[in-house]
C-alpha cells in the first residue's frame, strides 16, 4: 500500500512537472470554456436575469471543461504508447495502479486550477454565489474529472491510435454534453428529451453543482449528484485499474 502511494506520487510528479514548466498549457485548456463564458453567457442574462443566469451557466461550463479537458487526457497516453515511455515504465516494478492514479490525479489537479480560474472569470462577469457552494461545486467537478480521465485512458488504451480515439471521443462526448443541460437547464426541454437526459449521469452532476452555487446544499439534488459522482469515480477507476493491470500481461 505504501508502495502504491509512493509510486502514485512519483508518476503524478512526472506528469505535473512539464505543466509547471509550461503554464500556458493551463491557460489554453481553459480558453474554450472562457470564450463560452464571455461570448455566450451574457445572452442568458437577458433570458434569466443577471445573478441567477450566472449561477446556472458557470456550473454548466465547469462540467463542460471536465468533458473536454479530462476527456482528452487519453491523447497523452497514446503519445506515451508511441514513444515507448508506457512500456519503459511497465518494465520497472512500479505499481500498475500508480501508473493510472498518478496521471489521473495530475489531470484532476489541472482541472481544479482551471475550474477555479473560470469561477474567478465568472465573478468578474457578475456571478454571485456563496463561497461554500462554490467549493462544493469545485469538489464535485474535480471528482468528476477523476472519473472522466480514467475512462479516457481506458478508451485510449483500447484504441491505441489517435485516429481511432479522436472520432470515438467526439461521438461519446457530444451527446453527453447536450443531454446534461450544460448550456441551458434541461427543465426547458420537451418531455421526451428531458426523460432521456435522466439516463445521463452528467445531468445529475450539473444539477447538483447548480444547486450548490444557488446555496441549496441540503437538498436531494446535491445528494444525488454527489452519489452519482462517487459511483462514476468508483466504476471508472476500477475499469482503469483492470485495464492497466491487464496490459502488463
Amino acid at each position: 500500500m505504501a508502495k502504491v502511494v509512493r509510486d502514485t506520487y512519483l508518476i503524478f510528479l512526472r506528469y505535473l512537472r512539464p505543466t509547471l514548466r509550461n503554464r500556458m498549457v493551463l491557460v489554453f485548456g481553459a480558453v474554450q470554456p472562457l470564450v463560452y463564458l464571455v461570448l455566450f453567457g451574457p445572452l442568458l442574462t437577458e433570458v434569466f436575469g443577471g445573478a441567477r443566469s450566472w449561477r446556472v451557466f458557470v456550473p454548466g461550463i465547469l462540467v463542460q471543461l471536465v468533458l473536454f479537458g479530462a476527456g482528452f487526457a487519453g491523447f497523452a497516453l497514446i503519445a506515451d504508447l508511441r514513444s515507448g515511455v508506457a512500456e519503459r515504465l511497465r518494465v520497472t516494478p512500479v505499481s500498475r495502479v500508480a501508473l493510472l492514479l498518478g496521471r489521473v490525479l495530475r489531470d484532476a489537479l489541472l482541472l481544479a486550477v482551471q475550474a477555479s480560474m473560470l469561477v474567478a472569470a465568472g465573478l468578474l462577469l457578475g456571478l454571485r454565489a456563496p463561497v461554500a457552494g462554490v467549493l462544493v461545486g469545485l469538489a464535485l467537478v474535480t471528482a468528476l474529472a477523476v472519473a472522466i480521465a480514467s475512462l479516457s485512458y481506458v478508451l485510449a488504451m483500447s484504441t491505441g491510435r489517435e485516429d481511432a480515439f479522436a472520432p470515438l471521443l467526439s461521438t461519446v462526448t457530444l451527446p453527453l454534453m447536450l443531454l446534461s443541460g450544460i448550456l441551458l437547464p434541461m427543465d426547458l426541454a420537451p418531455g421526451w428529451l428531458e426523460a432521456v437526459s435522466w439516463a445521463n449521469p452528467f445531468r445529475y452532476v450539473v444539477d447538483a453543482t447548480r444547486a450548490a452555487f444557488a446555496g441549496d446544499y441540503a437538498t436531494a439534488t446535491v445528494g444525488r449528484g454527489a452519489a452519482v459522482t462517487v459511483a462514476l469515480v468508483v466504476v471508472s477507476v476500477a475499469l482503469g485499474t483492470r485495464r492497466f493491470r491487464a496490459e502488463n500481461a
Partner: peptide, 17 residues
C-alpha cells in the same frame, strides 16, 4: 522486473522532458 533492465528498440523517453 526488479532484476532486469530493458531497453526497447525505439527507446522509451519523452522528447520534451
Amino acid at each position: 522486473r526488479r532484476g532486469i533492465g530493458y531497453v526497447a528498440q525505439g527507446g522509451g523517453t519523452d522528447p520534451a522532458l
